[in-house]
Amino acid sequence: MAQAALTIDGLGVDFEGFKAVNGVSLIIEEGELRVLLGANGAGKTTLMDLISGKTKSTEGRVFLHDTNITNWEEHRIARAGIGRKFQIPSVFKELTVRRNLEVASCKNPGVFANLGFGFPAKAKVDEVLELIGLADEANRVAAYLSHGQTQWLELGLLITQDPKIILLDEPTAGMTQAETHKTSLIVNNLRGRHTIIVVEHDMAFVREIAERITVLHLGQVLAEGSVTDIETNPKVKEAYLGSKGIS
């Protein structure tokens, strides 16, 4: 069995009585691509918030390999090797596409270490520009990109940052079919190089990328398995998919 990249042990958060995530335990293996499914309010995004440090958990622990990173500050978790893409695409809007990636390529994040000029990782940035298909837009200011391009740029930021684990929160939200397909190509390209956790609603996209799926329901793990397992699981059908299955 492969080594565990991320171990979540009984993780939960209590928002003044409301448990958005309640005792979730997960083991994500090195190099795995895991999809998190669940209805609205199932706790998918909150779970990502807990892993990446945006929300502080009230119970349980999170391990990145053997390091306990529970409730660290966000930038320390990021430096430890967890990158995150947000549901609402967030990039540096006033900077050019290339500058965006250059900022992400910065290996030493301290202020004083960065008092020099020029970002050294040109080759890496060029490679990522190709991968996300924005090479022609490299000198455009990010604010002028289309919605889909902005999403890809944010993916590009993550790829350049090169974390061990990538958390993707609805990477295809608001995309056209063609754009969704291209996104699945980018994500598939990352498979094996990074451990990836994706929250997604778009089943066409999930089918294109998924290996293992974890279904969350009311803040708890409801089921875990392959696409077919999940499609045929009666509990899942009842809680999330309705009686018609995945269509």
């Binding site: 947000f86 990039v91 809007k93 900077l95 500058r99 965006n100 900022v103 910065c106 940052q161």
Partner: peptide, 23 residues
């Protein structure tokens, strides 16, 4: 400098910068 560029990135989107590992 790089720090100056990163500062402008921080001004654009603090959270994004934070999740890229910048203090």
């Amino acid at each position: 400098t790089r720090a100056g560029v990163i500062l402008q990135a921080v001004r654009n989107d603090e959270n994004r910068a934070r999740y890229l590992g910048f203090d």
